[in-house]
Computed example of a mutant assay.
Amino acid sequence: MTDFELIKLALEAREMAYAPYSHHKVGAAIESADGRVFKGCNIENAGYTPTNCAERTAVFKAVSEGVKNFKRIAIVGGMDNLTALPYCAPCGVCRQVLREFTDPKAFEILLAEVDNVTDLGKLDESQVHIKVVTLAEMLPLGFGPENLKLD
């Protein structure tokens, strides 16, 4: 799967976002080590604390299906009235959840700036600008499962 195809899946997931309070819609598509893709969107709640980000929705969907090994994630987001989307990085909580299931030095985070999202069916690669960073770059000195080993 190309980076562009993964970004398009994240854009499709963004269409399902439930963001009636912030109007900030986010979509994510996470690719497992075996090539399966799980999509997620942000889901808000009037109580705010129970809100779930798109990245965590995608991870939790995958884990609930028995998948716990990932190689990359594509993330797109922005206010729902925008026709062009800026880069949208994962929050700290999502970075920590991704850290639980990945090798931070190898796991790639694809962030996309999209020039025109009015018709996903007509979207082409020239409208998408992708920035790729590793989780280690986004979460330096991260705390992970190896920090809890007794030996």
Rank of each mutant, 00 (worst) to 15 (best):
M1E: 09
T2N: 02
F4N: 01
E5F: 00
L6D: 00
I7L: 00
K8T: 01
A10K: 01
E12L: 02
E15A: 01
Y18F: 10
A19V: 07
A19I: 05
P20L: 00
Y21N: 11
Y21Q: 13
A29M: 07
I30Q: 02
A33S: 10
V37E: 09
G40D: 01
C41H: 12
N42A: 12
I43W: 05
E44G: 00
N45Q: 06
T49W: 05
T49I: 05
P50N: 03
N52T: 13
A58N: 02
A58F: 02
F60T: 05
A62N: 00
A62F: 00
V63L: 14
V63I: 15
S64E: 08
S64T: 15
E65Y: 09
V67N: 03
K68N: 07
N69L: 11
F70Q: 09
F70Y: 07
K71N: 14
A74G: 13
I75F: 07
I75L: 15
V76F: 13
G78D: 10
M79I: 06
D80L: 12
D80R: 04
L82Y: 08
L82R: 10
A84F: 07
A84T: 09
P86D: 14
P86A: 12
P86Y: 08
P90K: 03
P90M: 01
C91M: 00
C91L: 04
C94A: 10
C94S: 06
Q96K: 09
Q96L: 12
Q96D: 05
R99N: 14
K105I: 04
K105E: 13
A106P: 04
E108K: 12
L111R: 10
A112V: 14
N116V: 09
N116G: 07
G121T: 11
K122C: 02
K122A: 07
K122V: 01
L123N: 02
D124G: 14
D124N: 08
S126H: 06
S126Y: 09
Q127V: 04
Q127T: 03
H129F: 15
H129M: 14
I130P: 12
I130W: 05
I130N: 10
K131L: 15
G142R: 04
G142E: 06
G144P: 10
E146K: 14
E146Y: 13
E146I: 11
L150D: 15
D151V: 15
